[in-house]
Design a protein around this nucleic acid. Structure first.
Length: 265
DNA sequence: CGCAACGGCTAGGTGCTCGT
DNA sequence: ACGAGCACCTAGCCGTTGCG
């Protein structure tokens, strides 16, 4: 960075009286759709494993240095579909659900309400009619959004609500899509995690990862290339590492060229 | 404890779309 | 044609964290 140039920029900003105002409530600068794109990219490239900035940026045809990319990553974390530290990224539990077509609808609603600002707006207007754009922007300022960011916050809010299915009954009403989810954000205000099914009895449902994994399993008696099998098994190993306690680190290698004997043989 | 690096976040410019 | 609204993008401010 050119220090002199920066100093000039600082002076210009300060002399013009542009005091930077920071929002006091969390909200993303890009919409839920762009966050899901990142989740999709990670899911399709490395599944449940970690990736870094450069990889994720390349998969989404961006530069890891660009602020657009950084804002997108920040948004994905705000929606809680991605997690990680620094330049490391991985799918969160919510992110895994978002990329699973069977759970996407509920997961998107959860992601939407994971944003403090959106949850506050939802709580305020649930069951009622949303105000016009200008009034909604003002409400967002009252909730803690920076004055200069109110319109952007509202736009991103509206697009995200659309993506999450909250506008299924028209843009005048913010309605939780018909999913079995109670709008609680884990770890906030002592609220508890929503339980997926209550009083259902019987077998607990399989972990979403296991469900997703099983869905990708080819039918018996069909062709399944060894490399694809290794990939599948390695993914399974990674899932086991993630969801089960105990020592992990299982590594599947293509070197196992010989077929293991069938039980009947 | 001070400095540097990093990452979160904001401000604002540019170009496109769409309604009038 | 023109203006408003919007999407996309970059520059860079500022708080946090790690390290010597």
């Amino acid at each position: 960075m050119d220090g002199q140039k920066e100093a000039v920029a600082n002076a210009a900003t300060k002399s013009a009286g542009h005091a930077r105002q920071r929002s006091t409530i969390g909200f993303p600068y890009t919409d839920l759709k762009s966050a899901i794109e990142l989740a999709d990219a990670i899911h399709s490239q490395v599944g449940l494993r970690d990736c870094d900035d450069d990889q994720l940026a390349a998969w989404t045809k961006q530069s890891s240095k660009s602020s657009t990319f950084r804002v997108q990553v920040y948004a994905a974390r705000t929606f809680r579909v991605l997690e990680g530290d620094g330049s490391n990224h991985r799918l969160s539990e919510l992110g895994r659900a978002v990329v699973d077509p069977k759970q996407a609808r509920e997961a998107k609603a959860r992601a939407f309400l994971a944003v403090p600002l959106y949850k506050a707006v939802y709580e305020k207007y649930r069951g009622g009619v949303l105000p016009p754009a200008a009034a909604l922007s003002r409400d967002m300022v009252a909730l803690g959004v920076s004055e200069k960011q109110k319109d952007r916050a509202r736009l991103v809010f509206e697009r995200s609500a659309e993506e999450a299915g909250f506008f299924e009954h028209g843009k005048q009403r913010l309605v939780m899509p018909g999913v079995a989810y109670q709008p609680d954000v884990p770890g906030e205000n002592g609220s508890e995690r929503p339980e997926p099914e209550k009083g259902g009895g019987g077998e607990p449902p399989l972990h979403p990862f296991i469900q997703g994994l099983l869905q990708t399993l080819p039918k018996p008696e069909t062709e399944w290339a060894a490399t694809a099998r290794v990939k599948w098994l390695q993914t399974a190993a990674n899932i086991f590492d993630l969801i089960y306690k105990g020592d992990g680190g299982i590594k599947i290698e293509t070197a196992m060229a010989q077929r293991s004997p069938r039980p009947s043989e």
